[in-house]
Computed example of a mutant assay.
Amino acid sequence: MDESTLTRRRLLELAGIGLGASALAACTAGIEPAVTSPAGPLTVRTSSGSFVSAYRQGVTSHWALAAPELPAGGARPQLPVAVFLHGLGGSHRVLLDGLAAHEALQRHVDAGGTPFAVAAVDGGNTWWHARADGSDTQSMLVKEFVPYLGGEGYDLGRIGLFGLSMGGFGSLLLASQGRLPGVRAVAAMSPAVWDNYDSRIEGAFDDPADFAANDVFALRPRLAAVPKRIDCGTGDDLAATVRAYRAGLPGAVEGGFQPGGHDDGYWRAILPDVFSFLGRNLA
């Protein structure tokens, strides 16, 4: 793997978009071998890097990105970007290793779908919201990672959110809370959602007040104008609650319930349809 470090000039540019000095000092990027298709007009390439997040108590957060490489020369339009939120026990690596999203994205653009980038960052097991221990991975996304993507030339007026399990919950929560005005669509795969507080929910909430502040069931009316897709396997233990959550959403909801469980095999199977949904809404 060939690696390169962001130039001093690029780091200075990033200083104006919200990353702290410690994060900038640790920010690195690398280029992976291309995923190629002889018939495809664009080639998807991947990159990776890391930064120290002010919202994760100094923890180094790694990220991964896959994007079609636009032809050189002439006007180069900004690509929209879909931000992926991983599940419990996962990391940024789920995007490319577990889901093989770069391969699915190559097939998407080869088939004539709207080109866009996909990006993921480590969120730990924080359930993508502010926690009593002082971590706040939702703010890391909003104030550090997404601005970084904007500084790299991606269109922050056309943002998609998608995630699985804990990250499906996080995607729905962030879209509902409206902290990213450029969100054009949200897709949740097997989202871990609950309609009431239970202290046994694997550390998802600190206490009943934390649950109430991040209750995606109560926040459903705020998704009325947001294009949304929600999928879940019929063999998933979360299916009943996901069905109840979908039933109370305002407006149209794409996706549905397909044979499958709570695993990479199911998520890889539905990812092409998720990318088609995102592409249509990020066009």
Rank of each mutant, 00 (worst) to 15 (best):
Gly98Gln: 12
Gly89Ile: 08
Met166Pro: 00
Ser139Pro: 02
Thr28Glu: 00
Arg222Trp: 10
Leu172Met: 04
Leu42Tyr: 15
Ala104Ser: 12
His108Pro: 03
Thr7Tyr: 00
Ala252His: 14
Ala117Leu: 09
Gly150Leu: 02
Pro80Phe: 13
Glu254Met: 13
Gly256Glu: 12
Ala101Arg: 07
Pro115Ala: 10
Gln258Trp: 15
Thr126Met: 07
Asp237Met: 01
Pro221Thr: 03
Ala39Gln: 14
Phe211Thr: 03
Ala185Trp: 12
Arg10Ser: 01
Ile230Val: 15
Ser171Leu: 01
Arg220Thr: 07
Thr36Arg: 04
Asp215Pro: 02
Gly167Leu: 09
Leu14Ser: 05
Gly89Gln: 08
Asp215Lys: 10
Gly157Thr: 15
Ser47Cys: 07
Val35Gly: 01
Pro80Gly: 05
Asp215Tyr: 14
Leu141Ile: 13
Ala21Phe: 03
Glu254Pro: 08
Asp264Ser: 12
Phe277Cys: 15
Thr126Cys: 05
Cys232Ile: 06
His92Gln: 11
Ala212Met: 05
Thr234Ser: 13
Arg200Asn: 05
Ser176Thr: 02
Leu88Lys: 01
Arg158Ile: 05
Gly265Thr: 13
Gly203Lys: 02
Leu141Trp: 14
Ala82Trp: 11
Pro221Leu: 11
Thr46Glu: 07
Ser276Tyr: 15
Val146Lys: 07
Cys27Ser: 07
Leu141Ser: 10
Val94Asp: 08
Ser22Asn: 11
Pro33Met: 04
